[in-house]
Design a protein around this nucleic acid. Structure first.
Lengths: 109, 109
DNA sequence: AGCGTTCATCGTAAATAGACGATTAATGTG
DNA sequence: CACATTAATCGTCTATTTACGATGAACGCT
């Protein structure tokens, strides 16, 4: 996952410059990852518990374990969350930087 | 498209209350609509020109007219943009309220 | 070593998304 | 009334998404 600058309009009159495409792609990536209610719910769960959680997500959602795992995979691929192995279980937590980047990109719209 | 309250945590300890699902769904709807770079680009175009535009979008993007039309349809279905007929052409413009709602929902994450 | 727990992955099926060319509907203009 | 222009829709094809159960891999515990 790329990590361009994407600051809100640093210079110039920007007639759709060059890096705009990268910003669009990044924003689209984040947005697509949140483009499903279950993933929004998962992200909210992870934010709610300041510490990270894991399989409890499955208990909180009306979805099969494999389905939740896939949603987690999508979120992880987008960069919004991270997963670290902790013994037999996996600890997921939000990447605050990515979330902030997403907010910045949306606010810059 | 529903329009729930979705204010950032108005009351209570919210143990995943009831309206959270509605907020998640709305956020997911907006996010899904922006889950494609072309649609982000279109939205940016519409925001850039304070006034609304229409088929010029096709000229600005490397996509077929029918494809752009479908993206516009998706954006319109999400509520992020509106289209008003103006003679033989259609004038698209951003719905500032929806955009603000989207920002609010993202910021409330 | 064996066992249960936890999570990822596989395989599958149904639905949706994305793109295009071709066609149609609507509206001005000659 | 033709005729061109504009945008939506249709039809098609391919790729991705979403969901599930079943299987597999990794780890801790007894």
């Amino acid at each position: 996952m790329l990590d361009p600058v994407c600051m809100p309009k640093p210079t110039g009159p920007l007639p759709v410059p060059v890096a705009a495409q990268a910003c669009d792609a990044l924003l689209a990536t984040y947005a697509k990852a949140l483009g499903h209610p279950a993933r929004v719910a998962i992200l909210r769960l992870l934010i709610g518990r300041d510490s990270c959680v894991c399989g409890q997500i499955v208990d909180e959602l009306p979805l099969a374990q494999s389905t939740v795992s896939q949603h987690l995979k999508v979120l992880k691929a987008s960069g919004l969350i991270q997963g670290t192995i902790d013994g037999p279980r996996v600890c997921y937590c939000v990447d605050p930087a990515a979330l902030a980047r997403f907010r910045t990109l949306v606010d810059a719209l």
